[in-house]
Nucleic acid binder design. Structure first.
Length: 465
RNA sequence: GGCGGCAUAGCCAAGUGGUAAGGCAGAGGUCUGCAAAACCUUUAUUCACCGGUUCGAGUCCGGUCGCCGCCUCCA
């Protein structure tokens, strides 16, 4: 079945057809590293990770670029507040971002270009725009004249008029011809301190929108397949990217624009002032497993608003535990021979899993199919019908779908002589009906995080997270 | 004011006009020395509200109420 994706540009769910067969080029708007990323940011990155992983699952070769915004108003402001050079200041948040990414099992993109590393590319783009007459200069800054780009507003559905009348008071004091115009190159100002670059346009620094156009075209070409971001990026950021890029090249910039919905916390917008603002570290400090956070952020359809609650986080942890316990149970099946029902069970789950994800990454029914299979397989285990061969097939299937989910752990606990010895002693005690001694040993193991399960095939143990 | 989205059980969340997936939590039971895990049974006569179309609507149309996002540098 073909993969379909909802394209913000057309407001339709369309079959995904890459420019080059078998290859997908994706640009994903990344973090501004002026602070620790919060779970709302990671909702977007996890959605993009799901897209990336599923494309790979479907056999596409994926090239993904995620920009790192390491110079803008906020990074400058906060680094000065902290009294450290900009690059030192952003280095810590960049490190934290990658560390959180790894903890959330988000696959690394192929490229993480930083804005400060691409000033020449941005200047070249401005030159191109200037030569084609799309820019004007005012008080040392270069602006993009939106009235010169008639298609402006197509992505966001913003009309020319509403932009004029609805515009807020401009937050910065740069002079523009019209409020909706946006800055390409910001003239150096005293409050920028030592953060500026020399250029043919004078000393200054790039505007935010510019980096995404310059860096995406550098790494992916003037036209590429998919561009993602949060829905709040649709306007003005992505609208401006389209204007800049298409004005410069005369070509279509991006074929599919994908945007994920906002994350709410306990039904409200996440905000520091509301006390419901969480970074990954905040949740880990509360004892939550980052993979449970991943599962929570992953398990709601990406275009839906996601209501993050601690109840749902705990439900996610429990759901993952159910899957992990299932994996453990499969690994300890001892019966030999064939288990003929397994093939059908897997085929059904796989086809539902794929059909759902093919439908604009509809993850909820995909997960539903997995849990339905788990229940049926658990029944086979409980009835003593599961065989080693069947268990191996299911494990292979789970590994294959986990290349998409990225939430499971297939590592088997290493055998531990001390634990095995204690289990042996406990089972000795049990066979002598010395329950006090048996329970004493079990409690001792529980204290060091080892949980025992007595099954028909003997006692197995697992570590508790 | 303009543009867009959402309202489904205690919580999270699917649902493509044909009679409400799945997960978590809860209740009862089976297994177990007791647990753990698992299994079985059970948990929405009902999908914000009011109308309409239809043989039939959570699903389509209109309206009302509520919540959320964007409207110049927030994923």
């Amino acid at each position: 079945m073909p993969l379909t994706l909802h394209n913000t540009l057309t407001r339709r769910t369309e079959e995904f057809i890459p420019l080059n067969p078998g290859e997908v080029k994706i640009y994903t708007c990344g973090p501004t590293i002026y602070g620790y990323a919060h779970i709302g940011n990671f909702r977007a990155y996890i959605f993009e990770d799901l897209l990336r992983r599923y494309l790979k699952y479907k056999g596409f070769k994926v090239t993904q670029v995620m920009n790192i915004t390491d110079v803008d108003d906020k990074t400058i402001r906060d680094s000065q507040k902290a009294g450290v050079p900009l690059s030192d200041y952003t280095a810590e948040y960049k490190r934290a971002f990658f560390s959180d990414r790894d903890a959330l099992n988000i696959e690394p993109a192929e490229y993480y270009p930083a804005a400060t590393g691409h000033i020449p590319e941005m200047l070249a783009l401005i030159e191109k725009l200037r030569d084609k007459g799309f820019t004007y200069q005012s008080e040392g800054s270069i602006y993009f004249r939106i009235s010169s780009f008639p298609e402006y507003g197509r992505l966001s559905g913003m009309s020319f008029e509403s932009l004029k009348t609805g515009a807020r008071i401009d937050a910065d004091e740069y002079e523009k011809e019209e409020a909706r115009d946006f800055v390409l190159w910001k003239a150096r100002r005293p409050e920028d301190g030592d953060v500026f670059w020399d250029s043919q346009f004078g000393q200054g620094r790039p505007g935010w929108h510019l980096e995404c156009s310059a860096m995406s075209m550098k790494y992916l070409g003037e036209t590429f397949d998919i561009h993602c971001g949060g829905e709040d990026n649709i306007f003005p950021h992505h609208e401006n990217e389209i204007a800049q890029s298409q004005a410069a090249t005369g070509k279509k910039f991006v074929h599919y624009w994908l945007h994920c919905g906002y994350l709410l916390v306990e039904g409200r917008k996440m905000a520091k002032s509301m006390g419901n603002f969480y970074t990954l570290k905040d949740l880990m400090d509360k004892g939550y497993d980052p993979l449970a956070v991943r599962y929570t952020l992953l398990s709601t359809h990406y275009r839906q608003q996601l209501n993050f609650t601690f109840d749902s986080l705990e439900a996610s942890a429990a759901a993952l535990k159910r899957l992990q316990d299932f994996i453990t149970a499969l690994a300890s099946v001892k019966k030999t021979g064939e288990c003929h029902q397994i093939e059908n069970l897997i085929a059904k789950a796989r086809s539902e899993f794929e059909a759902s994800l093919d439908d604009d990454l509809n993850i909820a029914p995909a997960l539903g199919a997995i849990f339905t299979m788990v229940k049926e397989a658990n029944r086979l285990i409980a009835d003593g019908e599961m065989t080693i061969a069947g268990a191996v097939k299911i494990l292979q299937f789970l590994k294959s779908i986990d290349t998409v989910l990225g939430a499971l752990d297939f590592s088997q606990p290493e055998s531990d002589a001390e634990i095995e010895e204690l289990i042996y002693l406990r089972n000795e005690a049990r066979s002598n009906k010395n329950w006090n001694e048996a329970d004493r040993i079990r409690d001792k193991l529980t204290e060091i995080g080892i949980l025992l399960e007595d099954t028909a095939d003997g006692t197995r143990w697992k570590k508790v997270k």
